[in-house]
């Protein structure tokens, strides 16, 4: 006879879309959990290349923060890529493709000074949250 213990009700894991503010390195790191935690990324980085036209008309460019670089793709389905100036800091929201190692950008525009100032806090908070979440995933 096994006494049934009342199991505390566990909140169902919320796997709805998340948008994480991250540095390029962080984005690459957290994307390894993408099959469990669906997420887009917001990054603040400097344009470090010219904008070129790649396959299927996609615009290609490089974004850099510190030593990290990520290849970016922008499909002009609904909106044209705004004029980007090399050396300027941009705020980019997109979906990181781990296999191809490219960030498919959905929104890109010049970063506002206030956003750049706040980005560190946001990145810290997202990291803390993701670390907790990953721990939870490992326990489960």
């Amino acid at each position: 006879f096994v006494e049934q213990k009342s199991v505390p009700k566990k909140a169902p894991f919320d796997n709805s879309l998340r948008i994480l503010t991250a540095v390029i390195d962080g984005m690459k790191h957290w994307s390894q959990f993408k099959d469990k935690v669906m997420c887009f990324f917001e990054i603040f980085a400097t344009l470090d290349s010219a904008v070129t036209i790649g396959r299927h008309g996609a615009k290609n460019f490089l974004l850099r923060d510190g030593k990290e670089v990520v290849q970016c793709l922008f499909y002009e389905h609904e909106q044209e890529l705004p004029r980007l100036i090399r050396g300027q800091v941009y705020r980019c929201v997109g979906n990181y493709d781990r296999v191809r190692d490219v960030l498919v950008c959905m929104s890109i525009r010049a970063a506002k000074p206030s956003e750049v100032r706040n980005a560190q806090e946001a990145i810290k908070a997202c990291d803390t949250h993701m670390r907790k979440l990953v721990r939870l995933l490992h326990e489960a």
């Binding site: 919320d14 879309l17 998340r18 948008i19 887009f40 949250h129």
Partner: peptide
Amino acid sequence: NLTDHTGT
């Protein structure tokens, strides 16, 4: 939809 780092 409203999304942040914790969900939507």
